[in-house]
Design a protein around this nucleic acid. Structure first.
Lengths: 204, 204
DNA sequence: CGTCAACTGGACTCGCAGTACAGTCAGGAA
DNA sequence: TTCCTGACTGTACTGCGAGTCCAGTTGACG
């Protein structure tokens, strides 16, 4: 456990950085082993093929993202007990966090795998799917809690509203990548936040 | 001009279908020439390399998308002269259109190229960038027109709001692809429509 | 001392991008 | 009619990256 901070994790770290920067397909095993300072054989000792690497990366990403959401909205809830206000605080924290990520955000791995479907097996695709469905359920639950206190001003499909968090993050990240700007995702989150404010605003 | 409906366009058609289905990298020149019933030499006669193909595809996509937006919002404007209401109609039409596209929507090519950056040269990336900036300007203009009639209920960054159309479409398409569902993008558009309704609702 | 996990290193196959180039073939200009 | 050119075909080659196979090394632990 000296400089070999667990080779497997080191491979994942290198791969992650490269995939975030240029995509999965464009990331060669060659450069991963060069970066991790191991041999090709060593790579295949840990991962049967590139698919297995993708799967492991996705698992890590999704766990990290879920932990992040858990933490963020738990902190937000501590700051304000009202479901709407704690959600607004959580989204603000999320936007701030996105702004502080110079290169990229795990979220884009979701999009990345989505658009390179055929490169991945059913397992990878299913991981991706389950992650998004998990976020849908998570946010749907939170929005339902809000709706119990503040009646929405317009009828809303709660599943779609739950998806909108992921959608707005993913969409923002796509813009960010394509435009080479740095705050599109956080701006989109802030717009979504304003949406919620309007949607659940008391009629009074 | 008999069965050879212009070989170049035929190549683009085949490539387009394949790229929409499985991504650019996973689309081999081999299968394109097989589909278009030409030789490998024939392909390279028309396109210097895969990059040139990507560029031509993107150009076609962007033109088509712009023409679609022109048409859609022109029709919407004919149906209602009010800027807000015609925007709401246009978004409804857009959502309906997205629902009727079984496989995919050109929009995903934007995301696709964004996430496979390094495969493409500066020209391709710039096309992508200009397209998104164009949509930003287009929608920003429309929202400003609306804001002149209906004062927004919350202060809004108009550039970001313009981007939100693209963001919500792209994000919805990501979800759609990952979840293997078929109406996420149109649902997201409809949510965005509700947003605009709330944002520009008269205070009365 | 032996064993086992965690590697190294090299040789090989295969598929795909891209290059090179010689040859074919239809149709319009001279 | 001849010649030229644009739109190809066909073949052969290089080079790269994924993935396979496997024999051998090394360090920690029982």
């Amino acid at each position: 456990m000296d400089h070999k901070v667990d080779t497997r994790s080191r491979i994942l770290d290198i791969a992650e950085a490269s995939v975030l920067e240029k995509g999965f397909e464009a990331t060669s095993i060659e450069e991963i082993v060069a970066g991790a300072e191991i041999s090709r054989g060593g790579f295949f000792y840990h991962f049967k093929d590139k698919n297995a690497l993708a799967r492991a990366m996705l698992e890590r990403y999704i766990d990290a993202e879920n932990a992040l959401y858990d933490d963020l909205f738990a902190r937000a809830r501590e700051l304000n007990d009202d479901p709407l206000h704690s959600m607004l605080i959580g989204l603000k924290l999320l936007a701030e966090m996105l702004e502080e990520m110079p290169t990229g955000h795990p979220g884009c791995v979701i999009a990345s795998t989505a658009y390179q479907d055929r490169l991945f097996d059913e397992g990878v695709r299913d991981l991706n799917r389950q992650a998004i469905l998990g976020w849908r359920a998570r946010f749907r639950g939170m929005f339902e809690q809000i709706a119990r206190v503040y009646e929405p001003r317009e009828p809303i499909n709660m599943d779609a509203l739950g998806d909108m968090v992921s959608s707005v993050v993913e969409g923002g990240l796509v813009l960010q990548r394509a435009l080479r700007e740095h705050n599109n995702a956080s701006e989109q989150i802030m717009l979504f936040r304003t949406y919620l404010k309007l949607l659940f605003a008391p009629k009074a």
